[in-house]
Design a protein around this nucleic acid. Structure first.
Lengths: 106, 106
DNA sequence: TGGCTATTTGGTAAAATAACCAAGGAAGTC
DNA sequence: GACTTCCTTGGTTATTTTACCAAATAGCCA
């Protein structure tokens, strides 16, 4: 594979890699409903704040979310809404693969 | 986060994780043009056959591609074409990352 | 100022990922 | 059956990812 073409696929893969984690997928899903601050997301996910902060920085570096500092809080929002289209496709991948999602989520 | 909901996001993340690799992204892109056998993909990518085989099994387990053995060859094809819609969105994520210079300057 | 809250960053250990080589089938040919 | 080709699987090693704790930073308010 050509060097330039390889670099192109690497860049694309980085965006997908940023999404490819359950917690980050949850965050994206949540931000699609509106902006949330770090403490809100931490509360919802139920893990260490530092962990959420790092997930958010991965999403920010990928260009998927953007941050807005107001007071002591930092509010994150979805900067590229089209990533939400991934969900419906991912659902259809899972469906075509085998059983419905609710049966998988035991 | 609820146990069931977490399992749901894990399942979704697995699909994205399967796509989140330059070589696998290339394979998906190539298969969108038509079925290819392992040796063809190996030739194009230029790495060990076993590596390509493992990438393909990851994509197959995720439900993204399907295989068809004919003779000694195994032909892979895209089983869920909607994943191609990822590409255009990923491109726009990469573009939007460079666009808002004023926000980056903060 | 000092204390309080919200967030980020550094460090560490465990787990997951990826690439190669080598060995193990399966299917076609002689 | 023996031989070849195509592909998959097991094993090893290097790299990356992830989660937590601890410490640092930033903004508010008494």
């Amino acid at each position: 594979m050509d060097r330039n073409i390889k670099a192109r696929y690497e860049k694309r893969a980085n965006v997908l890699k940023a999404m490819a984690h359950p917690t980050r997928l949850f965050i994206v899903d949540e931000l699609s409903k509106g902006e949330r601050c770090v403490c809100e997301l931490t509360e919802m996910v139920g893990c260490d704040v530092s962990t959420i902060s790092k997930h958010l920085s991965i999403l920010r570096n990928a260009g998927i979310v953007s941050d807005d500092k107001r007071g002591t809080s930092v509010f994150y929002s979805l900067s590229v809404p089209c990533v939400m289209s991934f969900f419906s496709c991912v659902e259809s991948v899972m469906c075509s693969c085998n059983a419905p999602v609710d049966k998988l989520a035991k």
